[in-house]
């Protein structure tokens, strides 16, 4: 699989960026879908950062784009906790240079990606890459990977984040999609579950147009439910201590 992906690179002549991995085109089975929705979504090949964006990379970004510095960012685009763990506008203080940057909003992540000539991954792209195991594209058939996931999602976030990219690479060469921080996606607000109390008491039909028929496809994939629930609870300006991002790019 991987070999043919590289062969494809050679044939059609597009280059994968050094810090990015090529995720080959594949079919993704959505976690939630309507009764009449297709069982699978075709996802085109894309490039994906091998690791999450770090504090030092984010520092470069805010240095080049003063309007995104901690004291300058508009509250519309990033809440009061934006880069709260940094010591100043251009100083990430005690946070490690190589640790994933967190306390960043969707807008700031999007602006970073655009500055790098990249974009945020869609939720489907992110989930597709995250479903790959250590040794094969279908992680459900990779026992080591399944065990690692169960362990990760059962452990609270560490107080000190490990450096970005220190985890074991999946078959595509992408690291830390599980077990370090949550990550933003471009369409995080396509998740149609509400954390609002009213939504949990049977009023969904009044809150969401058309969501009545959504049913879960794989009820055993608990981590995916957790991510789905996490995304649906976010707002675009939120900044959270265990939420970072990485970028994607078309090949």
């Amino acid at each position: 699989m991987l070999r043919c992906a590289f062969a494809l690179v050679a044939c059609v002549g597009f280059a994968v960026e050094p810090d990015m991995a090529l995720i080959p085109a594949a079919k993704y089975r959505p976690l939630f879908r309507g009764e009449k929705d297709a069982k699978e979504i075709a996802v085109a090949a894309f490039q994906f950062d091998r690791r999450a964006v770090t504090n030092s990379e984010f520092l470069e970004f805010v240095r080049a784009n003063p309007k995104w510095q901690r004291s300058q960012a508009k509250r519309l685009f990033a809440d009061e906790r934006y880069l709260a763990h940094w010591a100043g506008d251009l100083d990430f203080g005690k946070a490690g240079a190589a640790q994933p940057v967190t306390h960043v909003s969707w807008f700031t992540a999007k602006a970073f990606a655009a500055w790098r000539g990249k974009r945020l991954p869609t939720t489907v792209e992110w989930e597709l890459a995250a479903a790959a195991g250590f040794t094969q594209a279908d992680g459900t058939k990779d026992a080591d990977f399944q065990q690692a996931i169960a362990r990760w999602y059962g452990t609270p976030s560490p107080d000190v984040l490990p450096d970005a990219g220190s985890g074991r690479a999946n078959v595509f060469g992408v690291r830390d999609l599980h077990g370090v921080v949550w990550e933003w996606t471009s369409d995080f607000n396509s998740a149609l579950i509400t954390g609002d109390a009213r939504g949990d008491t049977g009023l969904e039909r009044q809150l969401f147009c058309g969501s009545g028929s959504l049913g879960a496809n794989d009820r055993t994939n608990f981590p995916a439910f957790m991510r789905f629930g996490m995304r649906s609870s976010l707002k675009a300006g939120y900044t959270v201590h265990n939420l970072g991002f990485r970028c994607a790019k078309d090949p």
Partner: peptide, 12 residues
């Protein structure tokens, strides 16, 4: 929040 379903309807 919104997503388009296979019939072209948007759940929102």
């Amino acid at each position: 929040n919104y997503a388009q379903d296979a019939r072209g309807q948007f759940a929102h």
